[in-house]
Design a protein around this nucleic acid. Structure first.
Length: 540
RNA sequence: GCGCCUGUAGCUUAACGGAUAGAGCAGCGGACUUCGGAUCCGCCGGUUAGGGGUUCGAAUCCCCUCAGGCGCACCA
């Protein structure tokens, strides 16, 4: 609809030449349905007052039957009031296309999105949960819009952290075996480490003590990372997230890392200094060059990450998306540098930073690093507030803003917690159809004469159009939050309608139209909710 | 010290450079004899952290100050 309008307005204003104008949904209904700033934009280049230009354009626009009123106001806005005919046509279009109406026109691409990727050294916490909710919603939205999406989890199972994990477990194991040890400062101190050590003890008894320490630590590390990874996978499943693929860092050792380094060498982007191997990331905009291979011969994580991205490139995606916690932002420029060095041409890499989550309870901050708090893990939070509320909560604010997650509020069923508001609208519609069934009211397949008389009904139609635009915007900006916001507005438009108008009991023609209207509204809500991984219950 | 993110009503927040800064919660007051009151309507509440600048027009862009968060390794 906007596209069509765009052309109409462009046509009406062509005597002044091209301009970068826009059309927006108005905030207040006195300003019509839509408004454009074209007169103000043109006034600069035409050296003419915007009101004059606006009046000329408005005169032309008034000839179109799609507008019931066109007015030019104060600073130079042209307010457009759409005729009922336009609403009816959109309404028919939505009904004809069904769910497909909400898909923006996009060219299908192959996209890989990597998210969560938490190290298998401890359970997922709330911050991971937000990344998970955003990554998963984004995948669903992208694939709904026609892209082919693969979701990948990268497991860091090769570096020092795993070594430390193994050592930590082995310390606990020795403790269980009766040795007196002093647990190292750098070790993982969580209780889950003790549980894992206990399991190993039950399986192996004291046999590990007879092995060489290096060997024993390795066994512990392997066992621990596997069990923790299993737990993580269970948490993700619980959170309704299925990855297409789990990629192990260890798989890159050492051949693919060498391959990546050699590739950079051939391009003369690598040099030796102080016995270490450096990548010239400054040539690609990074602040300083980065080490690939340390002087002790081992690789940095940066080296394996580089190799990992080369591996991704070899899989022929059109676009790559990495979702990281905002605490990794210092890492962005070096990976971008490596990526640009590796990828001569088309494939694009987007790095999305998810801002941190503050976990609160009744306004009090719960620390995530100490074990004082009750709900530091994602699992605990899900158990407490439920998957629906949890996922919705993570998505109500844009990715790039800090999120205060208050357990207390997430449990409440108020407008602070809009998931119920949206679900309730869905349940209400379902209930109307329940009543219809019970009262044996006939729903006609073909409604000859569509009627959208009231503001409330037109509002719903308008919000459905906005959902499609939100879908488009979410894809453009890789930001699922627009869809969520639109869902809340659709629910709002429906609740307003519901409170002022009736479906059952309205005059036959109107009732039949309204059946169609609420049916498509229900579809919009359930589709939208499914895209963010939230259920659409029939009753609550 | 350098870099990134953030600062909007008591709280949580919205606003492609556009109109009187828009919502929800909390507070106060109302609404269905009929489809679910987890809803709807009204009132109260703002110097958009502060100060400069850019322009027809700034919460938004630029500079400075203040406050908070996070990064600045041959760590992961």
């Amino acid at each position: 609809m906007k596209k069509k309008l765009y052309h109409v307005i462009k046509e009406a204003s062509k005597e002044w030449g091209d301009a970068d104008f826009n059309i927006e949904h108005t905030r207040q209904k006195e300003f019509g349905d839509l408004a454009t700033n074209i007169a103000m934009v043109l006034s600069k280049q035409a050296h003419q007052p915007p009101l004059e230009i606006g009046e000329v354009i408005a005169r032309k626009l008034r000839k179109y039957s799609m507008f019931s009123k066109v007015e030019v106001v104060k600073p130079g806005f042209i307010n457009l009031f759409l005729s009922d005919e336009v609403y009816i046509n959109i309404f028919k279009e939505v009904l004809g296309k069904g769910e497909a109406f909400f898909k923006p026109d996009v060219q299908g691409k192959r996209i890989q999105i990597e998210f969560v990727s938490a190290n298998p050294t401890g359970p997922l916490h709330v911050g991971h949960g937000r990344g998970a909710a955003i990554g998963d919603a984004l995948s669903r939205i992208l694939s709904f819009c026609g892209h082919t999406v693969e979701k990948e989890y990268y497991i860091n199972d090769a570096g020092n952290q795993i070594q430390t994990l193994g050592e930590s477990v082995f310390f606990r194991y020795r403790e269980i075996c009766g040795e007196k040890i002093s647990f190292p400062e750098y070790g993982y101190k969580g209780d889950y480490i003790k549980d894992i050590a206990q399991n190993i003890y039950q399986r192996e008894s004291k046999s590990l003590l007879e092995k060489e320490e290096k060997e024993a630590v390795k066994i512990c590390a392997e066992y621990a990372s596997n069990t923790i990874m299993e737990d993580i996978k269970n948490d993700l499943k619980e959170f309704r997230i299925n990855f297409t693929n789990y990629f192990h860092e260890i798989f890159l050792y050492p051949d693919q890392i060498e391959k990546a380094i050699n590739y950079l060498k051939e391009k003369d982007l690598v040099y030796c200094k102080d016995n270490a191997l450096w990548f010239k990331s400054t040539s690609f905009g990074d602040d300083k060059d980065r080490v690939l291979k340390k002087s002790d011969g081992s690789y940095t994580y940066f080296a394996s990450d580089t190799a990992y991205h080369q591996n991704k490139l070899s899989r022929n995606y059109d676009e790559l998306i990495d979702i990281w916690g905002a605490d990794h932002h210092g890492y962005v420029s070096r990976i971008m540098a490596a990526f640009n060095a590796l990828s001569p041409e088309d494939c694009k890499l987007h790095i999305i930073l998810v801002q941190l989550v503050n976990l609160l309870e009744k306004g009090e901050r719960i620390s995530m690093s100490t074990r004082g708090g009750q709900f530091e893990t994602l699992r605990d939070v899900i158990k407490e507030v439920g998957v629906d509320a949890c996922r919705f909560m993570f998505l109500t604010k844009s990715t790039n803003t800090h999120l205060d997650f208050d357990i207390q509020i997430a449990k409440e069923q108020s407008m602070d917690n809009p998931v119920y508001y949206v679900q309730y609208a869905h349940a209400r519609i379902c209930n109307i159809f329940e009543q219809v069934k019970r009262k044996k009211i006939n729903i006609r397949e073909n409604v000859g004469n569509y009627i959208l008389k009231t503001e409330e009904e037109k509002n719903i139609v308008k919000e459905l159009v906005i959902l499609r635009e939100a879908m488009d915007k979410s894809v453009q900006e890789l930001e699922p939050f627009y869809v969520v916001k639109s869902l809340i507005n659709i629910a709002c438009a429906f609740h307003q309608f519901y409170n002022r108008r009736r479906v059952i009991g309205a005059e036959e023609e109107i009732m039949q139209s309204r059946f169609k209207l609420i049916d498509i509204t229900k579809k919009a809500i359930s589709t939208g909710l499914s895209l963010i991984g939230v259920s659409a219950p029939k009753q609550m």
